[in-house]
Design a protein around this nucleic acid. Structure first.
Lengths: 158, 158
DNA sequence: CTTGAAAAATTTAAGAA
DNA sequence: TTCTTAAATTTTTCAAG
């Protein structure tokens, strides 16, 4: 994937200020609005960027509990993994899930209204493959650095 | 925080489609464009929503390695925690970091161009408090469920 | 890529529910 | 208040160079 300087700048700005107007974006990257819009459209068509998300401030919106869960499956079969991935996708409170190498099989982030509801979800996950799922819960005490995008300068080649 | 049905719908839509036009948003929530815009402005002023992020598709953009790191500090002093939090904020490849309760002290997600660079970051983190930091790295093999917003229906009271 | 005109969206102001 | 309408401003979009 080759990107010129302007496209990098567009992605970098759009990554952090998704609701910027095309006119402002054009000005900041030094293009006319129409060619800037053409580039944005192309970047979206190529699916290099999108969707666009509004970050909700949960702490101001309502009480909630965030838990990071490590998962180990005793049964290392494909079916067992598939079942777990499906559960992650189907439970709305599981807001993200990764398959990893190392000591664990999955990491999940779960956001629930309270511990009672979290406990239900925990039980639901244990029931997927009874006796074969090992969960460890870590309640989030503080978000030291919230996700605000990727470090493009470090990641893109010259 | 009390939100009527319309504000919930606005937040829910804006969370997932941040670049929707105000006119389309107004239509979907059943308001005139001007009153819809007023509500959005208020929600932003109250900092219930924002910033707005464009999701970059790293897998299409460039090669990269994502690692989830568990951190335990042997030294449980406030200074030690502070130093670690600062490092997380200052290293651009650390894209998010949480302080947690349980077996670990922190979870971090690190995105680096390759393993060589990841290893350097790992060393940098170990150097913060030599001999007193325990890191465990878990390379992400698959993103089973990427973060796409919070489950508002489950989280907001009636 | 740029310009420039037409179409669409945003924003403001005035007044009604 | 919060809404709607409507006009003024700004932005987006598209055709032509």
């Amino acid at each position: 994937m080759h990107l010129d300087k302007i496209n990098r700048k567009i992605l970098s700005i759009l990554q952090q200020e998704a609701r910027i107007t095309n006119q402002q974006l054009a000005e900041r990257v030094g293009l006319s609005p129409s060619s800037c819009l053409n580039r944005v459209k192309k970047l979206e068509e190529q699916e290099l960027i999108g969707p666009y998300l509004g970050v909700l401030r949960m702490e101001k919106l309502c009480r909630s509990v965030t838990v990071i869960v490590t998962v180990s499956l005793k049964d290392q079969s494909t079916d067992s993994f598939r079942a777990f991935e499906k559960a992650a996708r189907d439970i709305p409170e599981v807001v993200e899930c990764y398959t990893v190498s190392g000591t664990f099989d999955f990491f999940m982030r779960i956001v629930a209204p309270d511990m009672l509801r979290y406990n239900q979800i925990n039980d639901q996950l244990l029931d997927i493959n009874p006796g074969m799922v090992n969960l460890s819960s870590h309640v989030v005490l503080n978000t030291d650095k919230p996700f605000r995008g990727y470090p493009l300068e470090q990641l893109l080649e010259d």
